[in-house]
Design a protein around this nucleic acid. Structure first.
Lengths: 196, 196
DNA sequence: CGTTTTTCTTAAACTATCTTATTGTTTTAA
DNA sequence: TTAAAACAATAAGATAGTTTAAGAAAAACG
C-alpha cells in the first residue's frame, strides 16, 4: 500500500541527490502512508514529535497556542514539502507546537528511529535532508526579515504573490495568524488594497 | 598560522560527530584565519557570498538595509557560531545582506568550493553541517514565533534572558534593530521595565 | 588626553494595529 | 437539509509603536 507512495519522496530527491537503490528499499520499508481528515491533528502540544512528515496532497499547518489561547501559524506545508518539529524530534523534548490538517490530507511519515537508520546508512539521504533544512532556513529567514522590517500590508501582498495557490486554499483567519495580525485587521487591509 | 586555528572547528564537531583525521587535514588546508577590525565588512549587498564563516572571537552581525536605508539585524554570531548567507552561497545569487564585525573579531572562513569538497569527501562533515543548520533553524523558528506572537517588551526581556552576555556587548541600537523596533521605543521600554 | 562619533533619553504628535462588539454569510456536520 | 459553527466585514475606542527633534552621556580613536 504505502510501498508505491514512497515514489513521491524519491521524485523529490531527484532534484537534488538521487539516492541509491538499497536506500530506496530501506526508505520504502520505513515510510508509512497516512490519510488525514480535515482538522485532524498529528502533533499536539505536550507530546513528543516522533516523526518527520512529507505532504503528498493537502495542507498541514504548524502552529503554537499562547497563554491566551491564541493560535500563531509558524508554517504551512503543501504538496512536496517536509514538516516536523525539529526541536522536539531531535532533543526528545515535549513539543510546544501543533500540527493539523487544514484539508483532507495525505502524508508520508518516517519514524525518528527509522530516520536515524537512514542517515546512518546513506550519506546521500543525509545530504538531501541537509539541503531540505537549508532551504527551509532560507525561506524562514526571508520571512523573519519581512516580519521585522515590513508593515502588515506589505507582508500580506508578499504572501499573496509568493503563495497564490495557498492563498485561495486557506481562510483569511489562517493567513492573519501567519502574518501575525488579527483577522479584523487583515480584513481592513484587504478592503484598502482591493480599492487601489 | 591558520593551521592550528582549525582546532576551534574540530572542537565544535566533538560535541556532535567528530570527523576523521583525513578530513581534519582537508579542513586544515581549506580554512583561512582572518582578523577583522571593528565595523569591517566581510559581505555586502550585491556581492556573492562565497564563504561560510565560523567566529573564533568577537561578534558578527548579519543585516539587511531597506529602501529607506534602515538596517534590520537578522542574526548575531558570537564565539563558536557559524554564519553565512545560505541563499547567496548555494544559489550563486547576489546577496541582499551585509555581514559586519561589531567588535574586533577573529574568524575562520571556508570557501564555497572547498566546502563542497569537504561535503563530498566526508559524510560526517556533511552531517555536522546538517546539524548546524537544524539548530539554526530551530532557534530562528523560536524567534519567528516570538516576533509574530509577542509584544516588544516581551521580546526584549526574552532577549536579555537568552543572551545575557551579548546584551552587554552590543549597543541598544543593535538590539532594537534585532527586535524590530526603533531605538527610541526600546529606550521607552527600558525605562518602563527598570522601574518595575 | 581631548575631540569626534555614536549612543541613549525624552517628549509630543502621529500612524499602525488591537480589542470588542455587531451583523450577515459561508461551511460543516448531523 | 437544516442547525451549528466558522468566517468575513465593519466600526469605534484603546494601546503599541513611529517619527521627529533636541540635548546629554558614553565610547571610540587618534
Amino acid at each position: 500500500m504505502s510501498s508505491n507512495k514512497v515514489q513521491h519522496i524519491l521524485n523529490y530527491f531527484e532534484d537534488y541527490w538521487p539516492i541509491e537503490e538499497t536506500t530506496a528499499q530501506l526508505l520504502k520499508n520505513s515510510v508509512i502512508f497516512r490519510e488525514l481528515k480535515r482538522k485532524e491533528f498529528i502533533l499536539k502540544q505536550g507530546e513528543k514529535c516522533n516523526y518527520i512528515y512529507f505532504v503528498v496532497k493537502g495542507v498541514l499547518k504548524l502552529f503554537h497556542t499562547d497563554d491566551n489561547g491564541n493560535q500563531h501559524n509558524l508554517q504551512f506545508a503543501t504538496e512536496k514539502l517536509w514538516l516536523t518539529d525539529f526541536g522536539s524530534l531531535y532533543n526528545d523534548t515535549p513539543s510546544e507546537l501543533y500540527i493539523q490538517a487544514l484539508e483532507p490530507t495525505s502524508i508520508l511519515q518516517i519514524k525518528k528511529k527509522d530516520l536515524f537508520v537512514l542517515y546512518d546508512n546513506s550519506p546521500l539521504f543525509d545530504r538531501n535532508m541537509r539541503i531540505v533544512t537549508e532551504n527551509a532556513f532560507i525561506e524562514q529567514q526571508n520571512r523573519l526579515l519581512q516580519t521585522i522590517s515590513s508593515t502588515a500590508i506589505e507582508r500580506y501582498q508578499y504572501f499573496l504573490n509568493k503563495y497564490p495557490d495557498l492563498s485561495n486554499r486557506i481562510s483569511n483567519v489562517q493567513i492573519a495568524s501567519y502574518l501575525g495580525v488579527t483577522p479584523e485587521f487583515l480584513s481592513s487591509i484587504r478592503k484598502k488594497t482591493v480599492n487601489t
